[in-house]
């Protein structure tokens, strides 16, 4: 019966992560630190794309209108929401108190077993691919951002000024690179500009995704109520009839699923 509450919380957590990382990103760019700015831009894009992924997975699941097992149907919704907030690659359940990391084998580090019947395995590329399906070019843009956020050539471009080139009398071309001064502009390959434009046009749709997500709430509530009424109504007799109904409708149990 917590599924509807978790539905609301999943959105709040996803948005809070976007806000925190996004604020950091913006202030790094404004402070004239494009390398840390791009690193956080990549992270912001990852956090924002989780919402697209969540919408696509919910949409596909809610398209099943006549589930064979109403409880399994709600459990799957639960899993989709839980992955968006608590998804992991590292095996936290087993290692949360580990202090000897040197001896942790790969098999012990990786999260593979389900937790309480829920599969919480997640990697960010799933979300990036979902965003790419909605905004073509998003994955390429993400990979370009990675090239600038990792200690690769892109990161080197971001820490130097616009290079000065000249050809000497022998016809040899010289390129003078200098570590960046605090200028608000950075010289980068055209593909970087293209990546920023893709990110821009994709993030313009962020509010639509939030609306889309909110739009699934009535159907999630309906699925929870169906599961409660078909399989769990007897348990409702244990509750005070004037307490809020556990389905999350906001009505009192007596006038909601218990009725």
């Amino acid at each position: 019966g917590n599924t509807t509450t978790e539905f609301d919380q999943a959105l709040a957590f996803a948005l809070a992560r976007v806000v925190e990382v996004g604020e950091g990103c913006s202030s790094e760019f404004r402070a004239g630190r494009p390398l840390s700015g791009v690193t956080l831009l990549r992270a912001t894009v990852e956090h924002a794309s989780v919402l697209v992924h969540l919408c696509r997975k919910l949409s596909a699941h809610l398209a099943i209108t006549k589930p064979a097992n109403s409880v399994a149907y709600v459990t799957k919704i639960e899993e989709i929401l839980a992955v968006a907030v608590f998804g992991t690659r590292f095996n936290w359940p087993q290692n949360i108190n580990s202090d000897d990391l040197a001896t942790l084998e790969r098999k012990e580090r990786e999260y593979t077993k389900d937790e309480n019947g829920l599969n919480l395995r997640a990697q960010v590329m799933d979300a990036i691919d979902s965003a790419d399906a909605e905004c073509p070019g998003f994955r390429a843009a993400y990979e370009i951002l990675c090239e600038f956020a990792h200690p690769n050539i892109g990161a080197t471009w971001l820490v130097n000024d616009v290079p000065v080139q000249h050809v000497d009398s022998m016809g040899i071309q010289w390129i003078a690179r200098r570590l960046r001064s605090q200028s608000p502009d950075v010289a980068v390959p055209h593909a970087f500009g293209a990546a920023v434009r893709v990110v821009d046009s994709c993030l313009l749709r962020f509010r639509d995704w939030v609306e889309q997500y909110r739009g699934y709430r009535p159907r999630v509530l309906q699925a929870v109520q169906f599961a409660v009424r078909t399989t769990g109504r007897s348990a409702l007799a244990l509750l005070n009839p004037y307490d809020p109904c556990p389905c999350g409708s906001g009505a009192k149990a007596k006038f909601c699923c218990r009725a």
Binding site: L15, G22, V162, V188, P189, F192, F206
Partner: peptide
Amino acid sequence: LATISCPAIAEIVDRLVADATREI
């Protein structure tokens, strides 16, 4: 090479943050 403006990227991200903040 192209020149990108850091404040322009910050504006893109600020808009996202404003959208997300409004929804929380």
